[in-house]
């Protein structure tokens, strides 16, 4: 019951939160110099042509007028059109957001699979090689740029060894893509039983996932290690030792108490990576949401940028809601 009330409250607040985010990002985007009408029609367009186009695009009048127009369209599910792709932004985002989500979700699972065990081991065995290794690992993961690591991986595994597929998008062009139900390639090809597409998609995922996974395991490792260290020093873990509980029980208890911090860092990384993976997306020609937004910014294509911000905001709010629910499940002190 409590939890339902809590979720209800959170959902009510989502609307004003989104409004605030849209308002702020709208104003910020409007500050980017450049007139899309000029960019679209070229240097030889007449004033009349320009004015007509601006009216069509809803970019005439004051900024607030424009915001009002944007909001009205938004309520009807119209995020405007991108003049670069000449498609509705909503459609573009439905294609590109899943591409990014697929990539970063799998990457985060890899990062968790590396970070948590290493962090736990480094915290428990204080004077071991594992601890030294994880210290260096954390340092390196923090210092290396992800796109650089991606390029190195491409050089070794594609250029030199030829083990990995070409870094040219999510699917081999020679393969017929599955019908886009969800636009998550893995899910779509599973739905259709298109094993060829599935195989190709998975193959193409390997290098970018490894890139992002290795880099993002760093913060997860560090957070796990430091929280675990604190937990292992805590009174109740010391008391569990005093009671002679087996090592496995002691570690499990410490890890469970560390979970809230780990969940928090993962949620932060998740939200960040939607846009933060953009360099890796570019390196692998991924065609993801971040790439789409950056193109928009560079070409004064406002609607994709706003659409991207809106999508990311909704995604982040959903993630934070899920995080809160996880806290709820883990910690009885929050429940009561």
């Amino acid at each position: 019951m409590r939890i339902l009330r809590y979720v209800g409250k959170r959902l009510i607040f989502i609307v004003p939160q989104l409004f605030g985010i849209i308002l702020v990002s709208f104003l910020l985007v409007k500050m980017i110099p450049g007139d899309p009408a000029v960019l679209m029609l070229g240097p030889f367009a007449t004033e009349e042509q320009l004015a007509k186009l601006r009216a069509e695009m809803g970019i005439e009048g004051t900024v607030l007028d424009q915001f009002w127009i944007y909001l009205k369209n938004l309520v009807q599910g119209d995020l405007g059109t991108s003049w670069q792709t000449t498609q509705p932004v909503l459609l573009d985002l439905f294609q590109r957001f899943p591409a990014t989500l697929e990539l970063i979700t799998i990457s985060l699972f890899l990062a968790l699979a590396i970070g948590i065990p290493l962090g736990v081991a480094a915290a428990y065995f204080k004077r071991s090689m594992v601890k030294k290794f994880s210290d260096y690992y954390g340092l390196l993961a923090g210092a290396l740029p992800d796109f650089w690591l991606g390029l190195v991986l491409i050089f070794f595994f594609y250029t030199l060894l030829g083990w990995a597929p070409a870094p040219l998008g999510r699917l081999d062009i020679a393969i017929i893509p599955p019908t886009p139900h969800t636009n998550f390639l893995i899910i779509d090809s599973l739905i259709e039983g298109n094993w060829q597409a599935l195989w190709s998609a998975l193959g193409r995922l390997i290098l970018p996932v490894v890139t992002l996974g290795l880099i993002n395991a760093g913060p997860i490792l560090k957070m796990t290690q430091s929280t675990m260290e604190r937990m292992l020093e805590s009174d109740f873990i010391r008391y569990a030792d005093t009671c002679g509980l087996p090592r496995s029980v002691v570690i499990r208890r410490a890890l469970r108490n560390s979970l809230p911090s780990i969940v928090t860092i993962v949620s932060v990384l998740y939200g960040f990576l939607i846009g933060g993976a953009v360099l890796v997306e570019i390196v692998f020609s991924w065609g993801g949401a971040g790439q789409y937004a950056v193109q928009g910014v560079l070409n004064a294509d406002i609607n994709p940028v706003l659409g991207f911000v809106l999508f990311s905001a909704i995604f982040s709010l959903v993630i934070y809601l899920i995080v809160d629910l996880i806290y709820f499940a883990i910690d009885p002190r929050i429940r009561s």
Partner: peptide, 14 residues
């Protein structure tokens, strides 16, 4: 067996 002060801190909160 050992009994320690600050009993609430000695118990796993979860």
């Amino acid at each position: 067996a050992m009994v320690i002060p600050n009993p609430r801190g000695e118990l796993d909160p979860l």
